[in-house]
Amino acid sequence: MIFKVYYQDSKIRNPKREDTHSLYLDAENEAAAMSAVEAHTDYNVESIEALEGNALDYEQQGANYKLTEF
């Protein structure tokens, strides 16, 4: 399943909505997606959203859509 992970670049600074980034990740479930991001980055994860159906189709049409591999 594809997940969209919203994150901040640093765990040290207070989160600001303007500094939120996102990445797309293929994982078995939300817990596996969170574990992969925590194991390979220093990101402060805000939320993880499962994408399927029309939502996934919409995201895949965007210029920034690229699956992240660790």
Rank of each mutant, 00 (worst) to 15 (best):
M1Q: 15
M1L: 14
F3I: 03
F3G: 00
F3Q: 03
K4M: 11
V5F: 02
V5Y: 00
Y6K: 12
Y6P: 04
Y7Q: 06
Y7R: 06
Y7T: 08
Y7V: 07
Y7D: 04
Q8H: 15
Q8I: 10
D9E: 12
D9V: 05
S10P: 08
S10K: 14
S10G: 09
K11P: 09
K11D: 08
R13T: 12
R13D: 15
N14I: 11
P15G: 10
P15E: 07
P15K: 06
K16D: 12
R17I: 13
R17D: 12
E18A: 14
D19L: 15
T20L: 13
T20H: 10
T20D: 10
H21E: 12
H21W: 09
H21Q: 14
H21M: 13
S22F: 13
Y24G: 03
Y24Q: 04
D26F: 10
D26E: 15
A27V: 07
E28G: 14
E28W: 11
N29A: 09
N29E: 07
N29W: 06
E30N: 10
E30A: 12
E30I: 15
A31M: 13
A32K: 14
A32W: 06
A32M: 12
A33N: 03
A33K: 02
M34T: 11
S35A: 15
A36W: 07
V37P: 05
V37K: 03
E38H: 13
E38I: 09
E38T: 11
A39K: 12
A39V: 01
H40N: 15
T41S: 06
T41W: 02
T41I: 03
D42T: 15
Y43Q: 05
Y43S: 04
Y43H: 13
V45K: 01
E46T: 09
E46K: 10
I48P: 02
I48D: 04
E49Q: 14
A50Y: 09
L51I: 02
L51G: 02
L51M: 06
E52I: 01
E52S: 14
E52P: 00
G53A: 05
N54D: 13
N54T: 11
A55K: 11
A55R: 08
L56K: 01
D57H: 04
D57G: 06
D57V: 06
Y58M: 01
Y58K: 02
E59G: 00
E59I: 00
Q61Y: 03
G62R: 14
G62D: 06
G62Q: 15
N64R: 01
N64D: 08
Y65I: 00
K66Q: 10
L67A: 01
L67I: 13
L67S: 02
T68I: 04
T68K: 03
E69Y: 05
E69M: 04
E69S: 09
E69G: 02
E69R: 07
F70Y: 03
